[in-house]
Amino acid sequence: MKCTVCRGPAVIDLRRHNANFCAEHFLTFCREQVAKAIRRHDMIAPGERVLVAVSGGKDSLALWDLLLELGYDAEGMTIGLGIGDYSDASSAASQAFADSRGLALRHVDLRDEFGYDIPTAAAVTRRVPCSSCGLSKRHLIDAAALDGGFDVVATGHNLDDEAAVLLGNVLHWQTEYLGRQMPVLPERDGFPRKVKPLVRLGERETAAYCVLRGIDYIVDECPMAAGNRHLRYKEALNSIEAVSPGTKHAFYFEFLDKAADRFQPEAAVAQDGLRPCASCGAPTPTEVCAFCRLVDRVSGAEPVPVELLRAGRGRGRNRARSRGARQATS
């Protein structure tokens, strides 16, 4: 197999693009795709400061690296979720990446600063872990961005993530989420702008980018993710992609071009009437925001080890309400 650009030996074939690349030209391809996403969707203006949500996984480390490569002023931030070995490995991989490039990495630990961790929050609230996890991550990264004077928050959502969330939202006609499933959410009072510069790259590509750049990301999955709905949607889409390359890209980008606008009114209604949280000041439709209510409910609860939570899975507790899996990935 030969590189489409230089005819040298290829290391990866991208059937969706009908192209094969050597390592050098694959890395160029990734940079171009990210630059194109940023440009097309007006994600980041020159000179703006970017806060990157970093987990130590392939997507967030590839994102941070790509933004730096493209010359953006990008700082990283991790959140200590307290999910056993996974969280330890996640912090270690993020820190190693930052150290290798002499970068500063911000860190907030849920247990140290708010008195809970994700397994405990999931057990106390009796919801899937991704629900309190997503809520905590969104809230804390927004707050850190505003405090630190950042213009924009960048997350590592890739094409597979967006296509899977879109499929879930369509299957359940979550019209409010459909209206917000954009690669850019503009800044509003109290919320920083949120961007997803990896939307033009699939996760096979972000993983390949890390391998070829020598980025040591955590390959093992968060133990809370096993078997969730989001994963099943990805597998379903990949089965279609295998026989019909380009399906995921068309599904997501044609949605943005032809349909996303139609759901804007629903999203706007849902965002009407926001006011500052009585406790932390973050914008919220209720008197006290969802994050402060979560902290109030779970802080100081008897810690639940991650193993115990996993043992309890499948017995009903985590099965029914996977709201976190359906939400807009914002």
Binding site: S55, D160, A225, A226, L231, T329
Partner: peptide, 10 residues
């Protein structure tokens, strides 16, 4: 053989 599918949704 390295899996590339991540399961997190948030």
């Amino acid at each position: 053989i390295r899996p590339v599918i991540s399961g997190g949704s948030a």
